[in-house]
């Protein structure tokens, strides 16, 4: 016979529990929360850069006239401002990403965990070197 003991009355979510609503302005409570929300928003700007790059490549493929037109578009003050803002967001996004890499990779050598800066450090260094290289390629002459 199956157990005849009835399950005790148990209310999973008691009606008298008080639930606080999350305030609409919760993200202003702490700098860490604001940073989190900004980082979420940064994805929009990252996406914008991706679209811009695709359009740029397309313009290059269509010849010098199309490219000049694209450059005019870039000179528009509104686009310029948007790109400056996007640039900062993308940098912010990248810094987070490299800092995260140190936390995501738990590498052990000889039983000891490799300290974070040895993992994120080379990432940052590579970022700088590659950026410098690209800047040099673009800016020479």
């Amino acid at each position: 016979m199956k157990s005849s003991v009835a399950t005790p009355p148990y209310t999973l979510n008691h009606p008298r529990w008080y639930r606080k609503r999350v305030s609409t302005y919760w993200w202003l409570l702490r700098w860490e929360y604001l940073r989190f929300v900004l980082r979420e928003i940064s994805s929009v700007f990252v996406a914008w850069f991706v679209v811009l790059t695709i359009v740029q490549i397309y313009a290059v493929s269509r010849g010098p006239d199309a490219y000049a037109e694209f450059q005019d578009f870039l000179k528009n003050p509104f686009v310029l401002a948007l790109n400056v803002i996007s640039f900062f967001f993308v940098v912010f996004h990248s810094i987070t990403w490299f800092n995260l890499s140190a936390r995501a990779m738990a590498i052990r050598i000889g039983g000891k965990r490799v300290p974070g800066f040895l993992i994120s450090g080379p990432n940052f260094a590579a970022w700088l070197v590659i950026s410098a290289l690209i800047a040099w390629l673009l800016l020479r002459e």
């Binding site: 702490r30 860490e32 929360y33 940073r35 979420e40 936390r103 995501a104």
Partner: peptide, 18 residues
Amino acid sequence: TFVGECTRVCPKHVDPAG
């Protein structure tokens, strides 16, 4: 989304964000 607050408040240094 890697807010990281969990690790900061953890009294046992568990590093849940990690």
